[in-house]
Design a protein around this nucleic acid. Structure first.
Lengths: 266, 266
DNA sequence: CAGTGGTCTAGACCACACT
DNA sequence: GTGTGGTCTAGACCACTGC
């Protein structure tokens, strides 16, 4: 019984099988659970299950993909480790979401110095600007577009406890965010990435950041209400959806007088 | 056969069993593989297997702890995920090490801007200072010592391609690093954490960093050969050994003209 | 109570690295 | 070939949630 040749393991789109491609290069070899992982990933990308919703039980998925429950488990385990799914014992497995994930701002690593742990000073968000324009070479490269492609640019200021602390410019592919306006952003309450999920079906899954120390120029200083030349943390982020597709470029300037960027290494 | 009550699962020190403590508070419940994980962790801390060496095979460990190979596997999987062990198919499982991990400086996230990928400009290290003194309140708190306890302080400069780029102050508990001198540091070739492993039996396992933007003061500017006031990345790190014991406080200043701090979010 | 994820076992076979 | 980690299965039972 054990180890049936990892054959036609699916029901829907088109079943991968045994090892790698037929074209001959590397023998590859992809474990069954990796293939299952890919199939689940596809369903996520296609929106078969939406953020916050439960996916089918391990048992159901096992039947659907014609593999054992243990194999599905390993696939789901990895997706949960990547924060794409969230397991809750006794209830089910759910598609991860930036909304109400009871930790607002999952990607924001700036935290207050004091560990006072009071109600965490709800941020006030101010949209300074929101306009459509054409991507320059820089932005195009980051978002995997062509120079001149339409992009949406947003500039905003976040303040904690009345204190302007973050100034950021955000660039989004115009084609994926058609109805997005300053009004829409102002109306929305909660993380921006939550709005992207509900209104545009775009879920940010992963991001890379490049961090530097820079001096505030005149305009930046005014918006953050500090003196020009003050040292600021420059944080450039590229955020990706499923399958590593870049969907956002964000350039942030953080005031680190009473906050710091917190990171864990292991 | 399945699910023998998770009973006396050990041979050596003292076997934990079933659930949590006997003191009555929370029922707890700790899975068998977690207990195994703890036992392996103890052996690592006690130096039964040293950095770079292989640990016994899963089969041997299973026999030793009187559990199935699958249970050992799950424990080892988690330890490997935490970078405490390294699995190598066909060869064995090894204790992770900072030495020759074919990636020098595992905890240093500063990378060159240009992705030129040439021979990566071997860093030159200059020990500016190395002295023993008594911990002030700040250092004592970070290292879980008492004010006045002996500590070792090291100040050094790292240069990449002739360019001084990192200035850091390092504090270590004096009791754990008795024979460490400036000479010993200068002689050593390779990551400092590798020397800690081989000479002092201290392996750094995990670290937390707090990052800010600051302006260089006169002394710092001189050591980094920049003008006073230049923005620098301030990186405060606390590094931990096994069981979350803090063993190093490090305050670094990074020049981010041609380098940046790289971070991945997920 | 039934349903879901979580743990544990046992055994078979595969892929990889040495010898 | 032998030994190691890696994959896959099948089945049993535990822990948590909600009806």
């Amino acid at each position: 019984m054990a180890q049936t040749p990892p054959s036609f393991a699916d029901t829907e789109p088109a079943a991968p099988a045994t090892t790698g491609g037929a074209s001959g290069a590397a023998p590859a070899f992809s474990p069954l659970y990796q293939q299952i992982k890919g199939l689940i990933l596809n369903s996520l990308r296609l929106g078969e299950w939406k953020p916050g919703e439960p996916i089918p039980s391990e048992f159901d998925l096992a039947a659907r993909f014609r593999v054992s429950q243990g194999t599905v488990r390993k696939a789901v385990d990895e997706l949960a480790a990547d924060n794409l799914l969230v397991r809750r014992q006794g209830k089910g497995t759910f598609v991860a979401t930036h909304a109400a994930q009871h930790i607002r701002y999952r990607f924001l690593k700036l935290v207050p110095d004091a560990t006072v742990r009071d109600r965490e000073a709800p941020a006030t968000r101010t949209i300074v600007e929101c306009r459509r324009l054409r991507a320059n070479a820089d932005v195009a490269r980051a978002l995997n577009l062509r120079s001149g492609d339409p992009v949406l640019q947003v500039r905003r200021v976040l303040a904690f406890a009345e204190r302007p602390t973050i100034l950021e410019d955000i660039w989004l592919p115009g084609s994926s965010f058609k109805g997005l306006t300053a009004e829409r952003l102002r109306e929305h309450d909660g993380p921006m990435y939550a709005l992207f999920e509900t209104e545009f079906g775009v879920r940010m899954v992963r991001a890379e950041e490049k961090i530097r120390a820079v001096a505030a120029d005149a305009q930046q200083a005014e918006l953050l209400r500090v003196s020009p030349g003050v040292p600021l943390l420059s944080v450039e982020r590229i955020a990706f959806t499923y399958h590593d597709v870049p969907m956002e470029l964000r350039r942030g300037l953080y005031l680190t007088d009473s906050h710091h960027y917190r990171n864990e290494l292991s």
